[in-house]
């Protein structure tokens, strides 16, 4: 299972990569593994507002439907349209081509509440027990 170093993690198994005021979010490799084959993602609308710790998208896999929880607050500036046709990309490349949305963040201090790679690694190890 992959955990990347340069991004932040939310306990609901989403990741965020920030550069300036822009953030890219997605779900973690652990999350996609738990979900199994993803068959659909209900993407947010561009220009919609999202709040940290609330649902930004909904994913359906062959096993379950589950909420994607946004790690940050802000406005959606772009969504990954490619996922509408091929949601399985999230399984294949959750940190890369499987990104979900780009968000203009409101409050960068929210990032301090998130985990770094080693903290997230410990977190999922705990959760797995």
């Amino acid at each position: 299972m992959k955990i990347l170093e340069d991004i932040k993690y939310h306990k609901e198994h989403t990741w965020v990569k920030v550069s300036g005021k822009k953030a890219i979010i997605g779900i973690t490799d652990y999350a996609q593994e738990q979900l199994g084959d993803i068959v659909y993602i209900d993407l947010p609308e561009v220009d919609s507002e999202v709040e940290a710790n609330t649902e930004i998208a909904e994913i359906e896999s062959t096993k379950a439907t589950s909420s994607v929880i946004s790690p940050v607050t802000g406005v959606v500036i772009e969504v990954n349209e490619e996922l509408a046709e091929s949601p399985e990309i999230i399984n294949e490349d959750p940190y890369g081509r499987g990104w979900i949305a780009k968000i203009e963040i409101e409050d960068p201090s929210e990032l301090d509440d998130l985990m770094d790679a080693s903290e997230y690694a410990r977190f999922i190890e705990e959760e797995g027990k």
Binding site: V39, E60, S61, T62, K63, A64, T65
Partner: peptide, 16 residues
């Protein structure tokens, strides 16, 4: 309870 948790639904290809 979701259809997608049923074996029959998967066999049928009707998991929604």
């Amino acid at each position: 309870f979701q259809y997608r948790a049923l074996g029959r639904a998967h066999a049928m290809g009707e998991i929604t």
